[in-house]
Design a binder for these strands. Structure first.
Lengths: 259, 259
DNA sequence: TAGTGGTCTAGACCACTTA
DNA sequence: AAGTGGTCTAGACCACTAG
């Protein structure tokens, strides 16, 4: 939060930039402008003061104002139109974006543990062959994992990996590879890129047993494919999560308190 | 895409910035650096050349390099560390974000039509009263809509609106208000902010009939609450969409072709 | 101490919109 | 023609990291 130079004021008019703050001027300016939107001082469709006006008002250089406005534009708060001005964007449902933070919590929590239910070499069926771009019948690695917290099952993961004889697969690796590193994102993974999709599904008998859920209840299905640096698929898998244990949330715009 | 000044080259080394291009220098620089990541020339964990090196190499000012790197940082492609350098970020599953573009298509398509199945004034039950922050039993507006394309039902929407005697609700408004404007986002809406959540559900008898789906099959449930400028809830509703008609997709990192 | 990224200045020139 | 945003320069000073 921006440090206040003067006394606390209700309105944001007159708020100024503190050059001694640990926060850079452009960030303070972003907060000031956002607060004006959040408080309703500036509403959807309204035009912001021109850049030169803002320069004078807050005693900063054009580049600093530019940078603040670029950030607001990136965040979808305003739209700029050359020659016309900068305008506050109206809400738009389809610009909402959902993050996997809800899932991240599961992976980052130390109390979450991963157990391998099964790991063996199988021959690729039609679907796996298609996804992994290997010939049908090719030997691939198949892993089933359960992520849980205490006695509470959270995610049921099934994964197919291309079998690389060069790289021996050790038990410890199974637990870590492609799961831990993907969610934590600390180590540099061997994957170049990946594709994800979220679908809905109805829990079948096997899944119901493992997740201690009711057969026929709704669940999320998060499918993933990861590719190596040669752009060949390496891992294809999917997470099943009970519908009553997960929801994705998002906010459009912001309320006064948030800024 | 950046216009090429010289001949086409396989490697990105030696690629330069075209000052006559319609694309600004900093954008060209973003593309050049991204291409180096996408091609595998720069891999997760690698350090980028220092800013001053990039300045010299591409003959641009420090601020231009700064800007390009800021953009890459915003996009999650690199991480910067003061005093150490700029590094290519490894993939991280939890940073994936899903957009509602798949839904946007439904709303922006001209062939999609909205029909009102029911619109009447009811008295708020416990749940609606809670969501809309009105006393239980208060008169509210209840609307059921079906979005379809031709004979193909897409979304079943139910919505509760606070009843504002000041503002008469006319039929034409019902169709447009809070739906069209929310998805198109062209007109400035009366909403200050909104909360969205995605859950999974199993289709019940009524929904099955309306969506021509099978009872007991899986579906998405997109719930929304919108607030006015006084930060009071105005609209609470939810969209039901057959699971086999919708999936949310996302990509982590990028393949060579994409840049 | 040398090198890195982080911020910021005080302008300049351009393209565009509106009147 | 006047005003707007869009880009860019050529430095400056600072804070941080590493050898």
């Amino acid at each position: 939060m921006a440090k206040e130079t003067g006394r606390m004021s209700r309105t944001t008019i007159g708020e100024s930039i503190d050059r001694n703050s640990f926060e850079p001027a452009y960030i303070q300016l972003v907060y000031i402008l956002k607060k004006q939107v959040a408080s309703g001082e500036l509403r959807a469709g309204d035009r912001l003061p021109s850049e030169s006006q803002i320069c004078m008002q807050y005693k900063v250089s054009p580049m600093t104002v530019r940078r603040a406005i670029n950030i607001l534009s990136d965040q979808g708060v305003v739209d700029t139109a050359q020659g016309r001005g900068t305008f506050v964007k109206p809400l738009k449902l389809s610009t909402a974006s959902f993050h996997l933070m809800e899932l991240q919590e599961i992976f980052n929590n130390d109390r979450t543990n991963v157990s391998i239910l099964e790991a063996r070499i199988i021959s690729a069926d039609q679907k796996a062959a298609l996804k992994l771009k290997v010939p049908e019948g090719e030997r691939i690695i198949y892993i089933r994992r359960l992520l849980s917290r205490g006695d509470d099952p959270l995610l049921y993961h099934r994964e197919c990996l291309v079998y690389d004889p060069e790289r021996a697969v050790v038990e410890s690796e199974l637990e870590v590879t492609s799961l831990r590193c993907l969610f934590k994102g600390e180590e540099s993974s061997d994957f170049k890129y990946g594709e994800l999709s979220i679908e809905v599904t109805v829990i079948n008998r096997e899944e119901a047993e493992i997740l201690q859920a009711q057969e026929g209840s709704a669940a999320f299905n998060l499918e993933h494919i990861f590719y190596d640096y040669s752009e060949n698929p390496v891992s294809w898998g999917w997470f099943i999560c009970r519908g009553d244990k997960l929801r994705f949330t998002s906010t459009l715009g912001f309320r006064s308190k948030e800024v």
